[in-house]
């Protein structure tokens, strides 16, 4: 892992105002977000950020929601219950 004192980045997903998507995403980048995917038409995006930056991101004008990203895992293919 990183030797710096910085906390490890965590994955997040966000919904922002779709009418000013680019502007809000730019503000998020400046606040430390590394964007990994964006869906401008529906106003959502995903990215990673140092965990301690999350409260700052949440206060950016135009940010409507911020959730911690989770990884989904299906059961093994040979499991009878899917």
């Amino acid at each position: 892992m990183s030797e710096s004192a910085q906390p490890a980045p965590v994955g997040i997903i966000l919904a922002v105002d779709p009418d000013r998507f680019a502007e809000v995403v730019e503000a998020l980048r400046r606040a430390g977000l590394t964007v990994t995917g964006e869906q401008p038409a529906l106003g959502t995006l995903s990215g990673s950020v140092a965990e301690d930056r999350i409260p700052t991101l949440e206060t950016i004008d135009g940010v409507e929601s911020l959730d911690r990203e989770r990884t989904l895992q299906l059961p093994p293919p040979d499991s009878p219950i899917q």
């Binding site: 994955g11 997903i13 990994t36 995917g37 869906q39 038409a41 529906l42 959502t44 995006l45 995903s46 990215g47 959730d67 990203e69 989770r70 990884t71 989904l72 895992q73 299906l74 059961p75 093994p76 293919p77 899917q82």
Partner: peptide, 29 residues
């Protein structure tokens, strides 16, 4: 069998952009 929220959002947006009237998601956490 694994995927992230970010990948799922991307897939959903793709589906909407392609005119899907229904999105079926047999997945969850």
């Amino acid at each position: 069998g694994s995927g992230t929220d970010g990948q799922i959002l991307a897939g959903m947006a793709w589906a909407v952009a392609h005119g899907a009237q229904v999105i079926s998601m047999s997945l969850g956490a």
